[in-house]
Write a protein that binds this DNA or RNA. Structure first.
Lengths: 358, 358
DNA sequence: ATGAAAGCGCTAACAT
DNA sequence: ATGTTAGCGCTTTCAT
């Protein structure tokens, strides 16, 4: 508290204008009518003295908190971490506070969201996790606040930012096709949900375009986590051993889980089976082998969500939808050409081969 | 805005007491003198109507923002994500907002911290990244705010929460010794900094206790990242091939980088060389092999830091230090007994062996 | 043991 | 084209 804070009153004394006038000018209030020269003067002086409006005072008067809440399962998921980074950057730039809450086991989502609303006074909620019940939870409270689905969609949610996942899934599958693979398995998510359905559709698109039929025996429902990938791949290997030379996994962690299974079974990646994941992250570069993925600008998802939410809060928009595309293939060492046709033609089981030092 | 907000005025009308009296009671103000029965009455009514003080009004009047800033290099580092989770939980529970800012390349730390202070009006700053210059940055502004070093220490920082790393490093090294290893390399950090120095000291402690001399040829300065681990291990393998059967890496990512190098060189982990990392994370379970680590309760580090910061802000404490211990060994598949003495006694080079399906 | 009153810095409705 | 005024909900002297 060494120097004194610059307030409207101070600027008023400096410029001779009333605080209300200055307030209007600095907020670019449409209801302002002032001579351009005076407007410039006020803005110049405000800049000069580094005026920043007091958030508390502004909040009190305008019944706004300038803070936005985010719920997510865990920050430890790098996909979510990337999204949050984008959102937090935008919020900081715009003078909003992004308040993060993770849904730990020891506390109910109701409690978490309630705290966010009552204590932190968030004006809007972004959810990175599929939670259709969130709307009711939020709106059962004293006042309604906008909810934004981030990285997912569901009916009833008018505000969302999602990836255009179908082309990315197609891209991943086509990468495998281009390498020469024809028997491509898919570890999917729960296809009743939007994301998993889209990724499956992209997988189909790619196969269709090459006239290859989707083989139900090569589809296994997994989920987005490492454990799910592990379980699903175990099932697939047990069920259809040697029936595929490549796998498109519904997420990066799923791919990692699948690779772990193959390592245990002596199935070499990529020599015996190629694996490609969906969504990129640091993990893809630190595993052995490194994992080929389809990368989306995830921080942009968070940034867009925050921008959209702010537009909603400031009344510039009624609803907000954004779909982010531009996936890129990150080619790494989990994908390669399939083994010589011999192995495929004979229909032999996945060979349990000795690893050779590379 | 469907229901009306419960304010002190409302409670005043309900109970017949003045707002000031109620304010004092609900804040447990020491300067209160009220009959116990009335005190109970007021508290009961407040509970009944779910009274929550308005943060904005309180902030305006008391010149407090109830928000705390955190700077960190990236949320994608799982170590940091865990710490942030702990801190954000405590902040939410206490009605504080935790505002996170990551230090991206495109923007200066000064700018980030400035935004946090001026726009978000943070009352305190927690830094998860070693930045001795942070104090000057923060204090060059209009008013001083407390700064807390989280997960590091440096002279001049009176507020910190750090791990008691030395015993953990010793534990990691002893695990290798217990397995029968004698030639244990260490990929260290910059030992002029506290953390790296402590981990090195723990490594020394373990060797000393067994009467084994520290061999400078087996020490390589790496750093905490994957790339650093990769580089350092490459150097070590080139410099002292076959001279060690185990490695204690200064971090989990460093361990992962080291393992990647060994994979490339055909050095099997753990058959030829065992690896143990420091600090646990999801990564340790999804790599191949999974990585043995020493785990600390990192969310507790964040939680303690937040608690401490709040105590500072509320004037209950002048300074805050906490050192978190209780490391646990997470035994996974990157560590095993060393190969038969034969290999060691002959002093042969690290054998480039064929992998056998396991 | 409790109440009255002022005011934090800002915004918005209402003047001129 | 600009000023006056009345609070937002709370905390904090200062009075009883």
């Amino acid at each position: 508290m060494s120097k004194k804070r610059v307030t409207l009153k101070f600027l008023s004394e400096r410029t001779g204008f009333d605080v209300s006038t200055i307030s209007r000018v600095l907020r670019n209030d449409a209801a302002v009518s002032i001579r351009p020269e005076n407007m410039e003067l006020i803005k110049r002086i405000a800049r000069e003295f580094n005026y920043v409006p007091d958030t508390a005072a502004r909040s009190l008067r305008s019944s706004r908190s300038y803070s936005i809440g985010t719920v997510l399962p865990s920050l430890q998921n790098q996909i979510h971490a990337q999204i949050v980074e984008g959102a937090s950057r935008v919020c900081r730039e715009r003078g909003y506070s992004l308040v993060i809450a993770h849904l730990a086991n020891e506390i109910s989502p109701q409690q978490v969201v309630g705290d966010l609303i009552n204590h932190n006074r968030i004006e809007g909620l972004m959810s990175l996790t599929f939670r259709p019940e969130l709307r009711e939870m939020v709106n059962s409270g004293d006042h309604e606040i906008p909810v934004m689905a981030v990285n997912w969609r569901a009916s009833g949610f008018r505000n969302y930012v999602a990836l255009d996942e179908r082309p990315g899934a197609r891209m991943a599958t086509e990468h495998l096709l281009d390498l020469g693979h024809r028997r491509i398995a898919h570890l999917s998510g729960d296809r009743r949900r939007f994301n998993a359905a889209e990724r499956f559709a992209g997988y189909q698109d790619a196969l269709d375009a090459r006239g290859i039929a989707v083989d139900p025996a090569l589809i296994e429902v997994a989920g987005y986590g490492y454990e799910e990938g592990f379980r699903a791949m175990s099932a697939l290997v047990a069920r259809s051993p040697g029936a595929f030379t490549a796998v498109f996994a519904v997420s990066l962690l799923t791919a990692a889980g699948a690779i772990a299974v193959m390592n245990r079974h002596g199935i070499r990646v990529p020599e015996d089976v190629s694996v490609v994941g969906f969504n990129d992250g640091m993990l893809a570069e630190v595993t052995n082998p490194t994992i080929t993925t389809v990368a989306y600008p995830l921080d942009q998802v968070g940034a867009s969500a925050a921008e959209g939410m702010i537009s909603l809060l400031e009344g510039r928009l009624e609803t907000y939808q954004d779909v982010i595309g531009a996936p890129k293939l990150m080619r790494r060492s989990s994908t390669a050409e399939p083994a010589r046709p011999r192995a495929i033609r004979t229909g032999s089981r996945q060979q349990i081969s000795k690893n050779t030092a590379s």
